[in-house]
């Protein structure tokens, strides 16, 4: 039996997916990165290996997400792809007619427009993370509500209050103010969901032609309140795929399948990677006034890769 592995290491979660030769998801894992991408990848690989049938052979591996390069070096990825392309690939695989993808993750949010299965336009939040998962997480914990219940509570609101959504600092002070005025928590949460959607559509979605079918994915798609706010704001149905929170990893796995078709073999180092001693160290290069922060990635004390310099001096040393 053959399978393809996809790994998406993002700021908040690390997702590991294995698909079979027919591109169906065999296993999917969603674990928290907790700022330690190397540990998260090792943990994810160890866990998923235990869930797979014994006769399964990994024929290809792809990585994506903000730590795609790091994780790619660790596992011997056949393809290392940016998360925008990976998300688009996965969405158009699951919903072949998809024309719009809304994706909200931990630190970034994006919109991707597809026409006839081709990405024609995309945008990503530029500077502020007001409309992303981390901010929702933070507010949920401030209000002492488990994030899983956050969206459901929003749906119980009768009269959502208005919250300023443009900047996370403004939003938070606005929320505190409304709380102190005596508004109930449901209404504040619903207001926050609406503010987040408004901000997303006005910033990331500015000037974009949003056509159905609309696919909503990324960790925040679990939030019922945000889903409802999107449906209301757009006046159309929103499709949330079954594996909405690991779509990037699915995209990476799909891409590795294509890549290996051309290449003929995989560079996958095996699940034993999870037992190896990977280390990342860094130093500041004193070669010029740029003072680049150079990162060394080593396994069992052997240098595996090195990057972070602007001039290429250290990168080439890594050979």
């Amino acid at each position: 039996m053959h399978g393809y592995l996809g790994i998406d290491v993002g700021s908040v979660s690390t997702n590991v997916v294995v698909i079979d030769a027919d591109r169906e998801v065999l296993q999917a894992l969603y674990i928290r990165t907790k700022g330690q991408p190397i540990q998260a990848v090792k943990k994810g690989l160890a866990e998923i290996a235990g869930l797979l049938p014994a006769d399964l052979v990994i024929r290809g591996v792809g990585t994506t997400g903000s730590a795609r390069r790091l994780s790619g070096v660790m596992v011997g990825a056949d393809i290392v792809k940016n998360e925008i392309t990976a998300h688009a690939i996965a969405a158009s695989h699951v919903v072949p007619q998809a024309q719009t993808i809304l994706e909200i993750g931990g630190q970034d949010s994006k919109i991707i427009l597809l026409r006839h299965g081709v990405v024609t336009d995309f945008a990503m939040n530029t500077v502020c993370a007001a409309g992303t998962g981390s901010f929702l997480d933070q507010q949920a914990s401030r209000l002492n509500i488990p994030i899983e219940e956050f969206g459901g509570m929003a749906l119980r609101s009768k009269t959502p209050v208005r919250i300023a959504g443009r900047c996370s600092v403004f939003a938070e002070s606005d929320m505190i103010h409304k709380q102190q005025m005596g508004h109930n928590t449901e209404d504040i949460i619903a207001g926050l969901c609406e503010a987040l959607v408004r901000n997303y559509l006005n910033n990331v979605g500015k000037g974009k032609e949003i056509l159905a079918p609309v696919v909503f994915q990324g960790g925040v798609a679990a939030n019922l309140g945000i889903r409802a706010a999107f449906e209301q704001a757009l006046g159309m149905e929103i499709i949330v795929p079954r594996h909405f929170n690991v779509m990037g990893a699915i995209g990476a796995a799909l891409l590795s399948r294509e890549e290996v078709k051309h290449k003929g073999h995989t560079g996958f180092k095996g699940f034993a990677v999870s037992d190896m001693d990977y280390r990342a160290t860094s130093f500041e290069c004193q070669g010029c006034s740029n003072l680049c922060e150079v990162i060394n990635i080593s396994v069992d004390n052997q240098l595996l890769a090195r990057w972070g310099d602007r001039c290429g001096k250290w990168e080439t040393l890594a050979g």
């Binding site: 903000s66 792809k81 940016n82 998360e83 925008i84 392309t85 970034d108 006839h116 081709v118 990405v119 024609t120 336009d121 995309f122 990503m124």
Partner: peptide, 19 residues
């Protein structure tokens, strides 16, 4: 962040050309 956007933009343009 810039790297991701540039890579995605280049992918988009390559797809468009192929299309």
């Amino acid at each position: 962040g810039l790297q991701t956007r540039l890579e995605a933009f280049v992918d988009l343009l390559r797809q468009k050309r192929r299309w």
